[in-house]
Simulated scan of single mutants.
Amino acid sequence: MIGVALTQLGERPATPEAATEAQEPISPLLPPPYVPASISSAEPIDGLAPTRAAALPPTTGVRQPRPPVEAAATTPGREATSAPAGTTPKPDPPRETTPPPSPGLRIDAPVSLALSGAPGLLVRHRDFRGRVDRIGPGSSALDRADARFIVRRGLADDACVSFESSNYPGRFLRHRDFGIRLDRRDGTRLFDLDATFCAETRGGAIVLRSHNYPDRFVTESGSLLRLTPASTGTATGFVVRSPL
């Protein structure tokens, strides 16, 4: 038995003394450097698009050329001018608006028209004909209502006017066969043209020129109103009055 034990002890290697303690490395262990595989610029890395900053050339010391300044356009034969230093340029003038048809004609206002030479004679409608009659404060309510019109912007031209009856809304003074009538607006272009008159000031009165017959004016003859050529020189002057 002693021999067997000695034999086993002889076969077991001796334990080194250094094995009792862990041997420290000389330097810290680092992973090998990561070398990325070649990736094309079109493929994203980890879901991010590749940056192209590296492809741009360095900008240090590089100036961007300024675009040439174009000379101000000038009218042939006229030199360009500029405001003197220290002065404020004038603002652009406001856009022109459509002037009122006449100083005495206000849009959407009720008016009466009297003959300039005979203020007691007023334009009115009777039996749907345009005419002039003597109408005053003592006249009947019907006569005074027939001589009251509402000024509207011209049905065919905003710079002109149309006259709508006050007691027959929807009916306008218009010319037909060169006679002035009070007709209901029918929605046609012809009606709008016939019912549009352009007011012109003449010596403190106004004359009414036909829009679609610009060489004809409203005139009074035998108490009736008609369109007559300007060549006859008989355009009737009217004075704008407050309605009775």
Rank of each mutant, 00 (worst) to 15 (best):
Glu24Tyr: 12
Pro25Thr: 00
Ile26Asn: 06
Ser27Met: 14
Pro28Asp: 13
Pro28Ser: 07
Pro28Lys: 10
Leu29Pro: 13
Leu29Glu: 04
Leu30Met: 11
Pro31Tyr: 06
Pro32Leu: 14
Pro32Trp: 02
Val35Gln: 04
Pro36Ala: 10
Ala37Asn: 08
Ala37Arg: 10
Ser38His: 11
Ser40Asp: 08
Ser40Thr: 03
Ser40Gln: 11
Ser41Phe: 09
Ser41Tyr: 02
Ser41Val: 03
Ala42Trp: 10
Ala42Tyr: 06
Glu43Tyr: 04
Pro44Phe: 07
Pro44His: 00
Ile45Asn: 15
Ile45His: 06
Ile45Pro: 14
Asp46Trp: 12
Asp46Ala: 15
Gly47Lys: 06
Ala49Arg: 12
Pro50Val: 13
Thr51Arg: 08
Thr51Leu: 15
Arg52Pro: 09
Ala53Leu: 13
Ala54Pro: 00
Ala54Trp: 07
Leu56Phe: 08
Leu56Gly: 01
Pro57Tyr: 03
Pro57Ala: 02
Pro57Met: 00
Pro58Met: 01
Thr59Trp: 01
Thr60Lys: 11
Gly61Glu: 02
Gly61Lys: 10
Val62Asn: 09
Gln64Tyr: 13
Gln64Ile: 14
Gln64Thr: 08
Pro65Asn: 11
Arg66His: 00
Pro67His: 04
Pro67Trp: 08
Pro67Met: 00
Pro68Gln: 05
Val69Phe: 00
Glu70Ser: 07
Ala71Met: 11
Ala71His: 04
Ala72Leu: 15
Ala72Lys: 13
Ala72Gly: 09
Ala73His: 03
Ala73Thr: 03
Thr74Gln: 10
Thr74Pro: 05
Thr74Tyr: 15
Thr74Asn: 05
Thr75Phe: 05
Thr75Ile: 13
Pro76Lys: 04
Gly77Tyr: 00
Gly77Ala: 03
Arg78Met: 04
Glu79Met: 01
Ala80Met: 06
Ala80Phe: 00
Thr81Lys: 10
Ser82Met: 08
Ser82Asn: 04
Pro84Tyr: 09
Ala85Ser: 13
Ala85Gln: 06
Gly86Thr: 02
Gly86Asp: 09
Thr87Trp: 11
Thr87Asn: 06
Thr88Glu: 13
Pro89Arg: 02
Lys90His: 13
Pro91Arg: 09
Asp92Ala: 14
Asp92Lys: 11
Pro93Ala: 10
Pro93Asp: 04
Pro94Tyr: 09
Pro94Glu: 12
Glu96Met: 04
Glu96Gln: 10
Pro100Gln: 13
Pro100Glu: 15
Pro101Asn: 05
Pro101Asp: 01
Pro103Met: 15
Gly104Thr: 14
Arg106Ala: 10
Arg106Tyr: 13
Ile107Ala: 08
Asp108Ala: 09
Asp108Trp: 09
Ala109Ser: 08
Pro110Arg: 07
Ser112Tyr: 00
Ser112Lys: 01
Leu113Val: 05
Leu113Pro: 07
Leu115Val: 02
Leu115Tyr: 08
Leu115Asn: 08
Ser116His: 09
Gly117Pro: 01
Gly120Lys: 10
Gly120Val: 02
Leu121Cys: 03
Leu122Pro: 00
Leu122Ala: 04
Val123Thr: 07
Arg124Met: 05
Arg126Val: 01
Arg129Ser: 03
Gly130Ser: 09
Arg131Phe: 14
Arg131Trp: 08
Asp133Met: 12
Arg134Ala: 02
Ile135Ala: 06
Gly136Val: 11
